[in-house]
């Protein structure tokens, strides 16, 4: 029998219920996000995955529920916003905005600077280094409208990485991205995990869950299951998660 190592959690969600207008989107969600894991959040469309992330980030107000960020013993009253980084879906931005790649990545540092203070040379250096990590260092002065979909995604990723946060939330970072970029992003995520960071990814491609992630949460209005991929990601749970959408699950058996 396996002896499970003692799990440390960074975020605890309890009794979270979110509703838009008539329909509930998230219902009575209880979720513990373990530290240092690469977690996928999967479920059918409209199942509340993005909503969950936004609720945790306080971007919307739930009907009920508690979201607790577990503080380290070393921290005093650290600003939660600075420990969490967010990579939203890239479709909501006007890419014709006059901004270079470096400009956008630098924006990620604004949270750490707080109101009024301006980014300095140190911030620019961090931004350039991060651009190198995502393979975009040659594009730093390129106008963002001239980027491909994969490149835009990498820029958004860099924008979150410069925050040097402990917990990263990403909303469908692989959507519409070419294979090369996808592989690059996965390497980056694994790298984050090796540094002890926690990464939560809303993921749409069931085929790659076992390959990319070590933890998975299955959501359809409620949490169907949450835990290590090899324990939780199997036919029965997937059927429960996707049953009302009639999705065919071929070759999903783990």
């Amino acid at each position: 029998m396996d002896l499970k190592t003692k799990l440390e959690y960074v975020i605890e969600v309890a009794d979270l219920t979110v509703a838009y207008d008539v329909k509930p989107v998230l219902w009575d969600v209880d979720l513990k996000i373990p530290k240092g894991k690469l977690m996928a959040v999967v479920g059918p469309n409209g199942a509340g995955k993005s909503t969950l992330i936004k609720a945790i980030l306080n971007l919307l107000i739930p009907i009920s529920g508690n979201i607790k960020f577990i503080q380290n013993r070393a921290d005093t009253k650290s600003n939660i916003k600075n420990r969490v980084a967010y990579v939203p879906q890239s479709g909501n931005v006007d890419w014709d905005f006059p901004s270079t790649v470096l400009d956008v990545v630098l924006m990620g540092r604004f949270g750490l600077l707080g109101w009024i203070k301006r980014p300095g040379k140190a911030d620019v250096d961090i931004a350039l280094q991060t651009l190198k990590k995502v393979g975009m260092e040659d594009y730093s002065s390129r106008q963002i409208s001239q980027l491909s979909g994969g490149q835009q995604q990498r820029v958004f990723l860099a924008r979150a990485l410069v925050q040097q946060a402990d917990i990263y939330f990403m909303d469908e970072p692989f959507k519409g991205v070419d294979t090369k970029t996808e592989k690059a992003i996965v390497l980056l995520l694994k790298d984050l995990k090796d540094q002890g960071k926690t990464v939560v990814v809303v993921h749409h491609d069931l085929q790659t869950v076992t390959e990319y992630f070590d933890w998975v949460t299955l959501i359809n209005l409620r949490v169907v299951a949450s835990g290590p991929v090899d324990e939780v990601f199997h036919q029965e749970n997937l059927r429960q998660t996707y049953r009302s959408t009639g999705m065919l699950l071929k070759g999903m058996a783990v």
Binding site: L59, N92, S99, M107, F110, G111, I116
Partner: peptide
């Protein structure tokens, strides 16, 4: 000038700005 970076990030991506605390 004082709020330049706040206006910039808010105009470009208001959701992201909110996630940073603005």
């Amino acid at each position: 000038i004082i709020f330049w970076k706040e206006f910039k990030i808010f105009t470009f991506d208001s959701e992201f700005a909110q996630s940073l605390g603005f």
